[in-house]
Structure formats: C-alpha cells, structure tokens
Amino acid sequence: MLMQKRIFRIESNEGVARDTFRLVLRTDGAVAVRSGQFVDIALPGFFLRRPISVSDCLSDGLVLYYKVVGEGTRAMSEMTPGTVLELLEPLGSGFHPEKCREAALLIGGGLGAAPLYLLAKELLAQGKKATAVLGFNKADEICLAEELRALGIPVHIATMDGSVGTKGFVTDAIAAVRPAFDRFYTCGPLPMMKAVCAALDAPGEVSLEERMGCGAGFCYGCSILTKNGPRRVCADGPVFDKEEVLW
C-alpha cells in the first residue's frame, strides 16, 4: 500500500484513561494498515503533522490512541465528532506476525499497548497464540487491557504502585507469569524496551519513537544509528529487530 493523503472524519474522540484518548476515524473506501504502521495527522494551526500509531484498522476506518502531552495533542483532544482531518497513511514498516511460529508475547508500556491490539488480531488470524503483558504507572492509566482480553488472549498487568496486577515493571510481571512464547513484540518507553530485550532470549521486535519531520522517509529528521548504520525511524522503522538497536 503506497502512502497517500486522505480525508477522514472523526466518528468519536473520547477519554479512556488519564490524559489518554481513543480516536475513531472513518473515510470513504477501504483502509489497509498493518500493525506497527502509523499515520501522520495534519492539525489545523500546527505546522507539522502528528505521527500516531494505528491501534486497529477497520474496513473503512482507523482506531488511534493518543496521550495529551503538548499543545497539539491538547487541540486534538478537543476535536468533536464530524471534524474532518487529513492523514498521510499508511506510513512505516510494520510488525512481522508471520515470523512468530506458535506463540507470541506482546509487551506494552503505557500507550505502547495501542499497536499491540492490531498485532494480536493479526496473530490470531494466523492461528497463533498470544499473551499480553502491559505496564502502567498507576491504575488510572490502564488502557486496552479489556479490549485485548475481549480478543480472547491472556492479559497481565504491571503497575509501578502495585494498585493493579504485579507491582513493578513488565519484566517483573513476565518473570511472575512465565508465559510460553517463541517471539516477542514490544512498544513503550525506551528504558522498558531495553530491559525487556535484555531479559528475554527469544527473537524480538521493538517499535521505536522519535521526533519526526516528514514522517515519510525523505527529510532524515528522525534518523538513529543502528548496528546496520543510520536508519530512519519513520520509513525504515518504526519497528526494528531487537538486535539492530544500539541501546
């Protein structure tokens, strides 16, 4: 699927956890986005687009989760149903569910849980099993746990304050649960993903985040150094093999 500019209309835009919103967008015609890919949203009044990972791909729409972290996402959170948005989509490489043999471990930190939802659906459609371990600071930040459970996969929660699930990091929850898996996929804060990659022997994929310019691979604003040389997070990633990342 080639990158295109496309008009979407907001169907709903609701707060689902602390500072966290779920945005449902619809368009005319079919939408084809794979897990781990993202869209770049033009926000009226702001110069650069906002890159947001895709949490679910509907036949004619998208589900996105975002956190209010600055003026742009604050403005997004105040947009009402019916508002028209112009998106660039689809962007970036995706996760590789086909590389999982039988059972996958999905590890999300905070809003990093969002792209794991579409990944879980893809894995299940390929007849594979999945277990999710999600980490949050506090109970009021928890999102996507019920949605993932509704797919029929086990979901384990870790919270830093111990208010829900295992007290501590996702690595503590993984150690407690000891799920069976042959490949893992992770998205979340860099220190979390670093700890996960250090703790787990299996092959794994990580979804990185970087401040982007164009979002489509031609401005080189989001380049990182990897074991394979410079890579653009937007176009060569955001998903990378864990071995490629220089922690």
Binding site: F46, F47, L48, G72, E210, R211, M212, G213, C219, Y220, G221, C222, S223, I224
Partner: peptide
C-alpha cells in the same frame, strides 16, 4: 536526535 522542533 531530536533534530526537529515545531514552531509557529
């Protein structure tokens, strides 16, 4: 990085 900063 960061290499990009948005402005008005």
């Amino acid at each position: 990085t960061p290499r990009i900063a948005e402005c008005t």
